[in-house]
Write a protein that binds this DNA or RNA. Structure first.
Length: 92
DNA sequence: ATCTTGACCCTCT
DNA sequence: AAGAGGGCCAAGA
């Protein structure tokens, strides 16, 4: 992968404020890479350790199964509550 | 070079 | 609500 692209993605993730969340697809789009959600997931999986990766959920508001426990714990610690394993649906 | 595997996502049954 | 089917594309085997 182009290191430049990777850095743009990392930067977008770093910009998600505590207590807020985003999604893989949204991060990709904000990094100027629409349709490349998988790339975001892959990057967080291999070197997301120094990033707030726990603020990135799937498009439907659920956690990626691999990290669901750790992620929900970290979110809870920041005041983000998951109802029934998912983010409460935004109303209108 | 080809095939498979994913921290994904969307549209249409 | 739940599947199927496609799209996406970097890595590894």
């Amino acid at each position: 992968m182009d290191e430049e692209t990777v850095e743009r993605i990392r930067e977008v993730v770093r910009a998600i404020p505590p207590g807020e969340t985003s999604s893989y697809g949204e991060v990709a789009a904000r990094a100027g890479l629409p349709g490349r959600a998988r790339l975001v997931g892959r990057i967080l999986a291999e070197d997301g350790h120094d990033l707030p990766w726990h603020r990135v959920l799937r498009a439907d508001g659920t956690c990626a199964p691999q990290v669901a426990r750790e992620q929900s714990a970290r979110l809870r610690a920041e005041g983000v509550l998951l109802e029934d394993g998912r983010l409460p649906r935004p109303r209108r």
